[in-house]
Write a protein that binds this DNA or RNA. Structure first.
Lengths: 225, 225
DNA sequence: CCTATATTTAACCATACGGTTAAACCACAT
DNA sequence: ATGTGGTTTAACCGTATGGTTAAATATAGG
């Protein structure tokens, strides 16, 4: 059995049916979620026969799983590429800024990442465990880095002693709301006429704004206490 | 047609089958989302025959719509009750604090609210428009109040002149992440052993932490520039 | 009691949707 | 040209699930 899978080579259509399916699936899943997505819809988006979805990826579950796996590993890849491109952070503020910047730039390049992952993580479902586990593994570095850096800085008295859980939760909240708000903002625009333009400029502004809010909030001001 | 609907009075079972269904549906929808929810599962949770769901609420869509409508109006009701219970806010910081507090207390009492609404709003779907519209109408007060209050304060030079969109986005992000993180935190606990206890104490701490972060971030420190 | 009306139930229906299959198609090697 | 193996297609299948129905059961009013 299984003469399918790993087709590759020989024949070579116009740059991979497989890729077209994956792209279409990413779209569909991000808009409708695992349960709302329809195999037929994915096939249509990809301009491909439905049976091919099963030819290349056995089942809907397997397809979804691969999408998730790819997204999670993309996080890792993109974040690291971006961090490496940045100058080594000298001070704490720069560390936070570069982390925030990396995550925002990553998600702005791939808006499906927060959409699919968040929705899935909100779902009470045993396979969520699997996703969560891999995310924890992949994302793992960031909270740790922030945590230890802050602990050190707090010891040296340059920042307030705050609960790191609260701190990280706030940072994460400010980062992801940037993307979760997008579909809502679109509707608000259509309803009220007032809208946000999610472009390069806006994202840059958010990086600064978040960093500022974090720091000028927790930095101890010399003159008081 | 329609001899059903508005059964009420006459007979009177043990405190409303209708209510049992609504409660069960709220649960199911919040855990699995509109598409993932199963009518049979709702019936089971309510300990009721499946046909009753259709007897009281025509269809799955209608049932979901009612749930959403109720949640949205609950936001309004709870927020206002809470705000009225609080002392009139004298200064800006107190205004923000009391708004943040109201929203957090509201969602902590009804965790389904953020779960169902956020998931639904992430879905690309025409009926999202309807939901969004009602939320915009109901929630409407808060951003406006914050916005004008901040504009006034900024004029008087007590806080930095910041983009109100960025500001509100940050506040909202920090508030909702408090609840969106809950399912994830549960898994993290099972995976790594480290967990957060989402209790009264934690929520109170978050209210303070968020307020502090917002303000000590945007308040102009006398000694500097 | 009897009747009318609301409620509840089991059994059933229709179909949307994930998945399968067998045949066709296509490119290349021999 | 023909055979081989990956690829694509239309047509089909089984079932889960939303929804319906007709009969049963309860309740209140007369």
């Amino acid at each position: 059995m299984d003469k399918r899978r790993l087709p590759k080579s020989a024949h070579a259509p116009d740059l991979s049916t497989e890729q077209k399916i994956l792209a279409a699936a990413r779209q569909e899943f991000s808009e409708r979620g695992m349960d709302g997505a329809r195999m037929q819809a994915i096939a249509n988006r990809a301009g491909v026969n439905k049976a091919l979805l099963h030819y290349y990826f056995r089942s809907k579950d397997k397809l979804f799983e691969i999408i998730i796996r790819d997204l999670v590993s993309a996080i890792w890849r993109l974040i690291h590429a971006d961090l490496k491109a940045q100058p080594k952070a000298p001070d704490l503020r720069s560390v936070v800024r570069s982390l925030v910047s990396s995550y925002i730039s990553m998600m702005s390049q791939h808006p499906e990442i927060p959409l699919i992952l968040v929705r899935q993580l909100l779902t009470r479902d045993k396979n969520v465990r699997v996703i969560a586990r891999s995310i924890i593994a992949e994302i793992g570095d960031a909270p740790g880095r922030i945590f230890t850096a802050f602990a050190r800085e707090a010891k040296s008295g340059r920042i307030k002693k705050v609960d790191p859980v609260q701190l990280i939760m706030n940072i994460m909240g400010m980062v992801i709301v940037t993307f979760l708000s997008q579909p809502i903002a679109e509707i608000v625009k259509q309803e009220t006429g007032f809208g946000i333009t999610y472009d390069e400029k806006f994202y840059k502004a958010r990086i600064d704004f978040i960093t500022d809010m974090v720091f000028d909030g927790i930095a101890i001001k010399e003159r008081a206490s």
